[in-house]
Nucleic acid binder design. Structure first.
Length: 886
RNA sequence: GGGUGAUUAGCUCAGUUGGCUAGAGCGCCUCGUUUACACCGAGGAGGUCGGGGGUUCGAGCCCCUCAUCACCCACCA
C-alpha cells in the first residue's frame, strides 16, 4: 500500500484505535515490573477540556513508554459522578425547562441525573479514544459503581467505629443558592471592598456605651455578646457590664477574650456565634447562646417583623438606615476584606449552624505528614511536597455532608424518638427502617464527592484481595492537575494510609493549568474555552498532544500556543514523509531479511545519533521531563535523520539500514505521536502481524565510533561550505582539497549537500580556504570575492583573538589554576589549543592576502588538535602554512 | 495575614549539583520549484539572563535587597 503525500490524521486515527482495542494492546502483559497509573476520572456529565487532554497525554506517554520498555503496564480509565459539579449542571438544565429540584423527590432526582449522566458518558469515552489514550477499558470504573460505593461505606464504617466520624452541630460553609454546605477547601475567598460600620451599643445601666465595628450589621439580631481584649486599658471597666442591642433592646453581656484584635476597629467586637466562626468559638468559651438569624435560603429569621424574610443584603441596608435614623451609627469607613464565595455560583458563603457529619482529620493528617516527611512520595515539582505538608498541618475537621440529591447516600439513620441516636446502616434505598423495635429515619444527605473519590487508587483495583491490587498497588504515579493537590491528592494520601496502611502512589506528577492565548484562565463565562476535540479534528490527535506537552513543565501554568500544535502536525508530516521515502527505497530495493549492515560513514554516524537519542529520550522520560524527551525525538527525526542521513543516503543508499532506523525512530516517537507511528508501522508492514504499541523499545546496534566521527568532519566541511556559498552568493563553484581519502569517497555527498559543482583533489590549493576544518579545502572564487573575503577574515580574527585572550587570562589567573578542579583546567587548555589553532589558520589566510604584513609574529604555530583518524584512508594533519598565494 | 513560584531572544519556554562562546520551537531577514516532505530545504540576524549589592578563581544558577507578575493557604470583626 502506498502512502499518500500528506498525512491526514482523520483518515487513520479511528481505525488505528480500533485495531489497538481489538488486539487488546492496552491490557497489562509485559513480563517486567508493574507500572500503574489511574486516570483522574473526568466528570461524566460533560466534555473533556484542555486540562484532561494534557493530563491524558502525559499519562499515555508514560504508559506507552513503559509498555515498550516491557513493563506490565496498566492505565485505568474512569468517570466521576462529580456530585456537586454535576448537580449544578443538572439544576441549570431543570431551570431551563422551567422546573426546579423542589418539583421532584430525592429518588426521582437521582434517577434523572443518573440517566442524564449515562447519556453523556459514552460521549466522553469516545473522546478518550479520539485523544489516543491507551487505556485498558476492561478496568473502566465509574465513581458510582457498586464496588466504589461499597468501599466508601466500609471506610465510613471503619471511621465510625474508630470514632473518627462524628455528627455535630457546627458552623459550616453554606451556599444559600445551592442549598448545601461545603468543605473549607471548596470555599473561594475573594478580596472585596465593603463598609465597616461603627455602632453604639448603650450600657443597660445607662452609664455610657461601647462602640463596636462590624461589616455585617444585619446580624446584630443574632448577637449574644460583645467581646473586648482582657488587657485593653480602654475597656477594663466594661468587662462584665451588659449592653442593650439597638433596634431590639435585647440585653447581652460584655466578655473579655484574647481573640480580639485591639488594633482593629474600636477593639470591641459584637459576637454573633451562629454566623461567624470566630464568634462561634468565643461563644463556646463564654457559654453564650447561639441565635440563628439567617435561614438556609439566605433570608432573615428570628428578627423583628419589619426585617423578617428579607435577603441579607436588603436587611443590611434597612438596618443601617434605621440605625442611622436613630443615631446609633458613629461612623462608616471603607474596608477591603476577604469574603468567602461559592465556587460555582459566586454567592457569598453564609457561615451557618448545621448538624452534619465530620471527619476528625488530625490522626489522618499526622500519618500523612509523617509519610511525606519520610520522603515516601516523590513530587514533580518537588516544591509541592512542602506545600502539602503545610496544608496538612493546618487542616481542620472535614465536613462530608452535602444537601443534594446526586451522590452516594450517607448510610446513617436517626432515631425518630431520640435525635442523638444515630446508627450505621446500608439500607439507604429505604427512607425509614426499624431496628430493635425502634424507628429510624434516613439521613437525607450524600457524601462529599471527595470522600468517595479519595479511595480511587485502590478502589479501581478491587481492594482488597484482588490480583490487581497485589500487582498494581501502590500506583507508580499519580498524575493530575496541581489545582486538586489539596482537595484530592491529600485525601487519597490520608485515606490510603488509613485504609491500606501504605501510601497510595510512589510519585505525584502535577501538571499546570493551560490558559488561553493571552494568559487568561479559560472559563465558559469568558467564552475563551478551547475544545480539545475540535483541535484534534483540525490538527490530529498526535499534533495536538505534541503541542500540549512540548512546553510542559510540572506545576506551572502556561498559555495555549497553537503554533506548538502546528509544529506537532509538521513533525508528524515529517515522519510520514521519511516513511514515504523509505517505502520508495524499499520498493526499488526489495529486502527479504531484517538483517542490515552499516557500511558508509553516514550509516555509522546515524547509528551513533540514534543511540544517543534513544538514551536521551529514555533518561528524560524517566525523569518525567516530557518536553526534553520530545525535543530529543524531534531533533533526531528532523535534523539527524531527515536533513542529514536521508540526504546522504540518496547518494549511498542502504535500504535495510534505513528501514531499521525508521523502525527504531517510530518506537521513540510512538509515545508522543501514537497514531501516525502506528499507521506507518502497519502500512509499511515493518514487522508483519505486530503492533508498534506492543513492540519493544529499541536496542541500538553499536556503530563504529571512529567512522561516525569522520562523518562529523564531513559535516564540518559541508557547514562551512554552505555558509560561504550562501553569504558570498557562489554559484556553480568548485571545492578543491588535498589528501584525505574520506573526502574522495564522500565527494558525491558533499556535492549534493552543498550544491558545489565538483569536489576535486588537487596537489596545491588555491582560492578561499575553509578554516573550521583541519583539512585543506578551498572554494574556487573570483579574485574580487577573495579580496573582499580578506576583510571578513580580519573581523573573524578580531573575534578569535578575544576568545584566545579570554582563555589565556583564565589560565594565567592564579586563583583559577589553584582552585579550579583539574578536569576543568584541562578542558580550558584544550579549548585554548583549539582556539589558537583556528586563530593561526586565520592568520595564515590573512598572510596569503597580505604577504608583506607579518601578523602576530609571536603566535606559535600549532598543529590542529586531534585530527580524526579514519578507517577509510590515511589522514595527514594539514600544515597551517600550506596556504598558496593568490 | 502567611506561604510558594516566576522574571532568560519579538513570542512561548529549556537551561540538571556554579565551570566551553547561554539553547529550542515559532516569528523575522536572505536565498532556493534538487522526484520524501513548501506541513519543505540552505544560510542568517537577534539576549549586558528584571534592577542593585554580595560570596567565589568563576554566577543565568548561591546569598541579601528592591521591583513587577502569578498562584496557593487562611474564620480578622
Amino acid at each position: 500500500m502506498k502512502l499518500p503525500k500528506t498525512y491526514e490524521p482523520n483518515e487513520y486515527e479511528q481505525d488505528i484505535y480500533a485495531l489497538w482495542e481489538r488486539s487488546e494492546a492496552f491490557s497489562p502483559s509485559g513480563k517486567g515490573e508493574s507500572f500503574s497509573v489511574v486516570v483522574p476520572p473526568p466528570n461524566a456529565n460533560g466534555n473533556l477540556h484542555l486540562g484532561h487532554a494534557l493530563g491524558l497525554g502525559i499519562e499515555d506517554i508514560l504508559a506507552r513508554y513503559r509498555r515498550l520498555k516491557g513493563d506490565r503496564t496498566l492505565l485505568v480509565p474512569g468517570a466521576d459522578h462529580a456530585g456537586f459539579e454535576t448537580w449544578v449542571v443538572y439544576e441549570k438544565k431543570l431551570a431551563a425547562e422551567g422546573k426546579s429540584r423542589f418539583d421532584f423527590t430525592r429518588e426521582q432526582l437521582y434517577e434523572q441525573v443518573w440517566n442524564f449522566v449515562a447519556e453523556n458518558r459514552q460521549h466522553f469515552e469516545e473522546q478518550f479514544r479520539q485523544l489516543g489514550a491507551g487505556v485498558d477499558w476492561r478496568h473502566f470504573t465509574f465513581t458510582l459503581d457498586e464496588k466504589i460505593v461499597r468501599l466508601a461505606y466500609s471506610t465510613f464504617k471503619k471511621m465510625w467505629d474508630e470514632k473518627l466520624i462524628y455528627r455535630g452541630e457546627r458552623l459550616v460553609n453554606f451556599c444559600t443558592f445551592h442549598g448545601t454546605s461545603f468543605a473549607d477547601i471548596e470555599v473561594v475567598h475573594k478580596e472585596e471592598k465593603g463598609s465597616l460600620w461603627y455602632i453604639r451599643y448603650p450600657f443597660t445601666d445607662n452609664s455610657g456605651e461601647v462602640v463596636v465595628a462590624t461589616t455585617r450589621p444585619e446580624t446584630m439580631f443574632g448577637d449574644t455578646g460583645v467581646a473586648v481584649h482582657p488587657a485593653d486599658p480602654r475597656y477594663q471597666n466594661f468587662i462584665g457590664k451588659s449592653v442593650k442591642l439597638p433596634l431590639t433592646g435585647r440585653e447581652v453581656p460584655i466578655v473579655a477574650d484574647t481573640f480580639v484584635d485591639t488594633k482593629f476597629g474600636t477593639g470591641a467586637v459584637k459576637l454573633t456565634p451562629a454566623h461567624d466562626p470566630n464568634d462561634y468559638e468565643a461563644a463556646k468559651r463564654h457559654d453564650l447562646p447561639f441565635i440563628t438569624v439567617v435561614d438556609h435560603e439566605g433570608k432573615m429569621k428570628n428578627v423583628p417583623e419589619k426585617y423578617r424574610s428579607l435577603k441579607v443584603e436588603a436587611a443590611r441596608e434597612k438596618v443601617v438606615a434605621d440605625l442611622t435614623a436613630q443615631r446609633f451609627i458613629v461612623q462608616t469607613e471603607e474596608l477591603s476584606h476577604s469574603v468567602g464565595h461559592c465556587y460555582k455560583c459566586d454567592t457569598v458563603i453564609e457561615p451557618m449552624l448545621r448538624e452534619q457529619w465530620f471527619v476528625d482529620m488530625r490522626p489522618l493528617a499526622n500519618k500523612a505528614i509523617k509519610a511525606l516527611e519520610a520522603g515516601e512520595i516523590a513530587f514533580y515539582p518537588n516544591v509541592k511536597q512542602g506545600q502539602l505538608i503545610t496544608y496538612l498541618k493546618g487542616l481542620k475537621d472535614w465536613n462530608i455532608s452535602r444537601q443534594i440529591a446526586w451522590g452516594i447516600p450517607i448510610p446513617a439513620f436517626q432515631n425518630v424518638d431520640d435525635p442523638d441516636d444515630w446508627i450505621y446502616d446500608e439500607r439507604v434505598s429505604e427512607e425509614i427502617i426499624t431496628v430493635e423495635g425502634k424507628t429510624y429515619h434516613r439521613d437525607p444527605d450524600v457524601f462529599d464527592t471527595w470522600f468517595s473519590s479519595s479511595s480511587w487508587p485502590w478502589a479501581v483495583l478491587d481492594y482488597p484481595g484482588s490480583e490487581d491490587f497485589k500487582n498494581f498497588y501502590p500506583l507508580s504515579v499519580m498524575e493530575t492537575g496541581f489545582d486538586i493537590l489539596m482537595p484530592w491528592v491529600s485525601r487519597m494520601l490520608m485515606m490510603g494510609l488509613y485504609v491500606t496502611d501504605r501510601v497510595p502512589f510512589e510519585k505525584v506528577y502535577l501538571h499546570g493549568l493551560i490558559q488561553d492565548e493571552h494568559g487568561q484562565k479559560m472559563s465558559k463565562s469568558k467564552g475563551n474555552v478551547i475544545d480539545p476535540i475540535a483541535k484534534v479534528r483540525q490538527f490530529g490527535a498526535d499534533a495536538f498532544r505534541i503541542g500540549l506537552i512540548s512546553d510542559e513543565s510540572p506545576g506551572s501554568n502556561r498559555p495555549y500556543d497553537e503554533s506548538k500544535v502546528v509544529g506537532g502536525r509538521n513533525f508528524c508530516n515529517k515522519l510520514w514523509n521519511i516513511a514515504r521515502y523509505t517505502e520508495d527505497l524499499l520498493d526499488k530495493n526489495p529486502i527479504k531479511e531484517k538483517h542490515f549492515n552499516a557500511t558508509t560513514l553516514a550509516d555509522h554516524w546515524v547509528l551513533s545519533k540514534l543511540q544517543q537519542s534513544t538514551d536521551t529520550v529514555a533518561d528524560s522520560l524517566d525523569k518525567y521531563n516530557f518536553s526534553e524527551a520530545y525535543e530529543a525525538v524531534r531533533r533526531f527525526v528532523w535534523d539527524d535523520l531527515a536533513d542529514w542521513y536521508i540526504e546522504a543516503s540518496k547518494v549511498q543508499p542502504n535500504p535495510a539500514l534505513l528501514r531499521y532506523i525508521l523502525a527504531s525512530v517510530l518506537k521513540l516517537a510512538h509515545p508522543f505521536a501514537p497514531f501516525v507511528t502506528e499507521t506507518i508501522w502497519q502500512t509499511l508492514a515493518i514487522d508483519q502481524n505486530s503492533l508498534l504499541a506492543t513492540s519493544e523499545w529499541p536496542e541500538v546496534s553499536l556503530p563504529d565510533r571512529e567512522l561516525a566521527a569522520t562523518f562529523e568532519e564531513i559535516r564540518t566541511i559541508i557547514f562551512e561550505t554552505r555558509n560561504l556559498v550562501n553569504s558570498l552568493r557562489l554559484r556553480q563553484t568548485k571545492l578543491h582539497y588535498i589528501a584525505p581519502a574520506f573526502v574522495t569517497e564522500n565527494s558525491a555527498i558533499i556535492e549534493r549537500l552543498t550544491g558545489v559543482k565538483t569536489v576535486t583533489e588537487v596537489q596545491t590549493g588555491a582560492g578561499l580556504k575553509l578554516i573550521t576544518t583541519p583539512y585543506d579545502c578551498w572554494l574556487e572564487v573570483t579574485p574580487e570575492l577573495l579580496t573582499n573575503h580578506a576583510n571578513t577574515l580580519k573581523e573573524q580574527r578580531k573575534a578569535q583573538v578575544e576568545v584566545v585572550d579570554h582563555l589565556k587570562s583564565r589560565l594565567t589567573n592564579q586563583g583559577y589554576t589553584e582552585k579550579a578542579p583539574a578536569n576543568i583546567i584541562e578542558q580550558t587548555k584544550v579549548q585554548l589549543a583549539q582556539a589558537e589553532s583556528l586563530l593561526s589558520t586565520i592568520d595564515g589566510e590573512i598572510n596569503r592576502f597580505a604577504p608583506k604584513q607579518v601578523v602576530n609574529p609571536d603566535q606559535p604555530k600549532s598543529s590542529p588538535p586531534n585530527p580524526p583518524t579514519t578507517g577509510q584512508g590515511s589522514v595527514k594533519p594539514p600544515a597551517p602554512e600550506s596556504g598558496v598565494s593568490v
